[in-house]
Amino acid sequence: MRIQKMRYIFPIGLFLAVFLDGTLTHVWSGWMVTPTTFVESRLVLLWLFMAVCFGEVDHIIFWSILAGFIYDMYYTGIIGIFILLFPLMVYITQWIVQFFEPSFILLLLIYLIDITILLSMGYALNLLINLTDVSVVNFIGRTLGPSLAYNLAFFVALYYPLKKLFLKYS
């Protein structure tokens, strides 16, 4: 009987990604959170994205709901935004990826779409429940643009190591 190592690696990596998002924001807060920019780190989405594309993870929707719950409770204290958005992003990614043969450029573009949807829906939901009053123009210029650049840089840097990890242990 073979023990599937991804059964253990995936939850540990997901848990680390949840806390790395906040840690990196805290460590680099001098340039991530300024009066003119607010960069949102979304390593959790990167981990889930790579798992959808290259991993054979059982119950990935459940894991994304759990990650969303932990993310909501740890960072916002309000259950609901990420507990809905992470599973939605997993579902959207699964739906899009089924139509294409994965390549670096194609997955980069799909990840760009995922990050844009996640950040925009997070903004819209926060606007809906009155947690923000930032205008759409300010959101796009001060949050969405810098966050896309930051998260895409992490995608480029971590693509091959994460791809190898998921392919090796799935």
Rank of each mutant, 00 (worst) to 15 (best):
M1W: 04
R2M: 13
Q4F: 05
I9P: 01
P11R: 10
P11C: 12
I12D: 01
G13H: 04
G13V: 08
L14T: 05
L16W: 06
L16V: 15
V18T: 11
G22L: 02
G22V: 07
T23M: 14
V27N: 03
W28E: 13
S29H: 11
G30N: 08
W31S: 12
W31H: 06
M32R: 01
V33S: 06
T36N: 05
T37W: 12
E40W: 11
V44R: 00
L45M: 14
L48E: 04
F49M: 10
F49G: 06
M50D: 03
M50W: 01
M50S: 07
A51Y: 07
V52L: 08
C53R: 07
F54E: 03
E56P: 00
V57R: 04
H59D: 11
H59P: 00
I60P: 00
F62C: 01
I65T: 07
A67Y: 01
F69H: 02
I70A: 12
I70R: 08
I70N: 02
Y74T: 15
G77Q: 06
F82P: 01
I83S: 15
I83F: 10
I83M: 15
I83R: 05
I83E: 10
L84M: 15
F86M: 07
L88P: 00
M89S: 11
M89I: 09
M89N: 09
I92C: 10
Q94V: 05
I96F: 01
V97W: 02
Q98W: 02
Q98M: 14
F99N: 09
F99W: 12
E101G: 11
E101T: 15
I105C: 05
L106E: 02
I110Y: 03
I110G: 01
Y111K: 04
L112R: 02
D114F: 00
I115S: 00
T116A: 08
I117L: 13
L119A: 08
S120T: 13
Y123D: 05
Y123E: 05
L125N: 03
I129H: 03
I129C: 07
T132Y: 01
D133A: 15
N138Q: 14
F139Y: 06
T143F: 09
T143N: 09
L144T: 09
L144C: 08
S147H: 08
L148C: 10
A149T: 14
Y150W: 15
F154M: 14
F155C: 11
Y159K: 10
Y160R: 13
Y160S: 14
Y160M: 15
P161N: 12
P161S: 08
K163P: 06
K164Q: 13
Y169S: 12
Y169P: 01
Y169D: 09
S170K: 08
